[in-house]
Design a protein around this nucleic acid. Sequence first.
DNA 1: TGTTGGCACTCTGGTCGGATGACTGCTAGC
DNA 2: GCTAGCAGTCATCCGACCAGAGTGCCAACA
Lengths: 345, 345
Amino acid sequence: MNILDDRKAAILKAIVRDYVSEGEPVGSKRLTDSMKLGVSSATVRADMAALEDAGFIAQPHTSAGRVPTDLGYRYFVDALGQTEEPTAEQRAAIEALLLGAGDLEDLLRRTSSVLSRLTRFAALVVAPRLDRSRLRHVELVHLGPHSVLAVLIADTGRVDKRMLDLDKPVSETDVHRARHVVNEAVSGLGLRHAADVVAGVAAGAPEELEGLLDAVAGTITRGVTDAGAGDQVFLGGTVNIVAGGYFERLEQVKQVYETIEEQVVVLKMLRDTLESGDPAVKIGTELPLVELAACSVVAATYETGGGSGGSLGVLGPTRMDYPRTLAAVQAVASSLERALGELVG
Amino acid sequence: MNILDDRKAAILKAIVRDYVSEGEPVGSKRLTDSMKLGVSSATVRADMAALEDAGFIAQPHTSAGRVPTDLGYRYFVDALGQTEEPTAEQRAAIEALLLGAGDLEDLLRRTSSVLSRLTRFAALVVAPRLDRSRLRHVELVHLGPHSVLAVLIADTGRVDKRMLDLDKPVSETDVHRARHVVNEAVSGLGLRHAADVVAGVAAGAPEELEGLLDAVAGTITRGVTDAGAGDQVFLGGTVNIVAGGYFERLEQVKQVYETIEEQVVVLKMLRDTLESGDPAVKIGTELPLVELAACSVVAATYETGGGSGGSLGVLGPTRMDYPRTLAAVQAVASSLERALGELVG
DNA sequence: TGTTGGCACTCTGGTCGGATGACTGCTAGC
DNA sequence: GCTAGCAGTCATCCGACCAGAGTGCCAACA
């Protein structure tokens, strides 16, 4: 990827750094002042013209300095060596998260809060995937003849509940019996396996339980296959989208908000992003959604003891401090792994 | 409260209506044109001066028209007769909510979505209070020797989970036994009663179960007493705070966001608001939080079959269409009651 | 060939003054 | 108690103007 000679690369990096910290298009003079390249501003100008031709930077208008394009940020990110270490301040903030988290949900909520405060961007935290967890217990609650609530409890502490679709009314005792049968069968199994097992049990069960057991099998299957249907997303610090002052047009801000209010979209975004690595960065138009063309996503995964994992990330403007954000996201991900270990152990 | 003569009252109402719909300070000329009072603008001016003296309206600057104060809105709201009927469009939107809600959480999430779309304000929906629900089942899950997860399932379909505080490690079989004992004792009881019963059972239980049962009693008690600790709030349409364009200063918007990201605050706000009636309106400085001095809250309660209830409302600018908002909030509340009935029945 | 200094040009952003228009408060008269 | 008219105030809009920042290009130089 080294299509740029050393000086051009240095200039591009300097432009990115300057623009990220100052927020204003950066010109050749400004650049020669702050860098010690030993060349004049005219030379830098020539290089900048070349960088613009190559698509790494752009000019908002004729007499303005240059601004990095998505491609420019991409080059910058790819050229990063190892990511920064989190600062002491960051560490302290994250440690505060470790203490006092009650349950899994609480922990994930805190995580999204810490992540957003650390980065000053909107934070996205996705709960550990259910389909790779093991079932601890399945509770069936008879709310009415046509409504039975299934509560799936995973070894990660995650609790998932959903109503069963029932054709025929069921009695409270049948629900009790089904509950017993199901728990005998599935305890400790992974979700994929559990669904099959329950389906098998249903086939051989007394008639009055069959429909109920089928519904349970169905609901477990849905937990595995439905992309995002059962996944929980914890959003934090969405204020930052507007408070940061990165966007000029209100319309943009509105679009971003509307987009991330959709869980499914957020999940897909994180999943897409993480396909390219871990941690991963998607910049502007690299994101699958045109509404987010002015945004970047920095994401990472975290693992739980049981082998199931989740993901987390932040959504901010393309004009973000990528090294710092990467460091923060990674630090939070690893702290979350530790906290999860403590919570369950 | 009728300190205003008929004409002054009519003028005040006209000012409120005009300002709400147009968003600009309204002057005497404009008013005489749109109203048919049979008096001249000079007369209206005199009345407006009186209204300003009385504190109902104010002038942003000398040569501008008048804007209602919080007190002015208050008069307007108090003087409203019965609230409007929801429009056909509103009804249709709400009906869409009734269909296809999976479980309680899903239903409440949809409710907040519908409410915000209907009113174009931020919507707040609080889950049915646990302390007035009846317990259907208590599940104890042994995640590790020091961590046991308690899952409380109420007859409303609400599921509440929390980690138990344990002094001593417990074995998986003890958890099983405790689970059995607890469910024998509490099924069908209200939460207040259940806590006492479990505490009683704990006192007479074998030593190895006592700590565990005490912890369960404690966690149930917390469900009753902790203001908001176990209460869930579903926020929806928070975009509208910024998208509406009601606030000039970005700082204000930021404050509002930060305030409502705190569950506890939202809960307290709704509770305070509903102390003054149902449905209830709190305008600007009537709200307990200075940060929300530019906002109003319109709230109502909803009841579930079992006698426990929750509350919902919207948060918008003081410059809101109160009749329309009141109608929408009430319509959503009653639709939610129906939907809850269907979900559980 | 790459680098440099210089120059003309362009475009934005801020400031200033004047014209405009929407109000109000006041007063004299009906 | 109501009205018409008048003088005064203030925000807003608009065009003009200027300073500043930055560019592209060109000729000269190593």
